[in-house]
Computed example of a mutant assay.
Amino acid sequence: MANSNEPEETNLLTVFNQGLDLYNSICNSSEHTNSSTVQSNVKKAMSLFEQATHLVSYAGIFSTNEGIEEVATNDLQYLLLPALLGSLSLKLTNGERKEIIDVAEIYYKDFMSRCNDYGLSNYVFNEKKEQKEPQNEFDKIAVSVNTRASKIQRYKEQKELKSKLANLKTNMENEHADEEIKRDYFLTMIKSFIHEAVDELNSIEMEKPLLEYMATVKKDEKKPEPRRPITPLKPIIITKDAVQKAVFGAGYPSLPTMTVQEFYDKRIKDGIFPDPSKQPTGPLSLQQSALAGLDLNSEEKEAEEKEKNLENDDPEYIQRMRRMDEYKDEHRRGWGNRANRS
Rank of each mutant, 00 (worst) to 15 (best):
D265T: 14
V145Q: 07
N41F: 14
A303D: 04
S35P: 10
K132C: 05
M112A: 09
A72F: 11
E127Y: 07
S87K: 08
N65V: 13
D102Y: 06
I152T: 07
N309G: 06
G334M: 01
Q131F: 12
C27S: 14
Q288L: 07
Y327E: 03
Y252D: 01
E330K: 09
N74F: 15
S29K: 04
N11A: 14
E157N: 11
S277N: 11
L255N: 07
L90T: 04
D110V: 15
S163V: 04
P256L: 05
D220V: 01
E70R: 01
D184Q: 14
I236Q: 01
H195E: 10
N167Q: 05
P134F: 04
L120E: 14
A149S: 12
F263Q: 02
K240M: 12
E175M: 08
V145L: 03
S285Q: 05
S144E: 08
F62R: 04
K128F: 10
S254F: 04
I100K: 01
V247E: 08
S192Y: 06
C115D: 11
M112Q: 12
N122A: 15
G19C: 01
D220T: 06
N65Y: 15
F193K: 11
K128C: 04
R341Y: 13
T14H: 03
E302K: 10
T231M: 06
N146D: 07
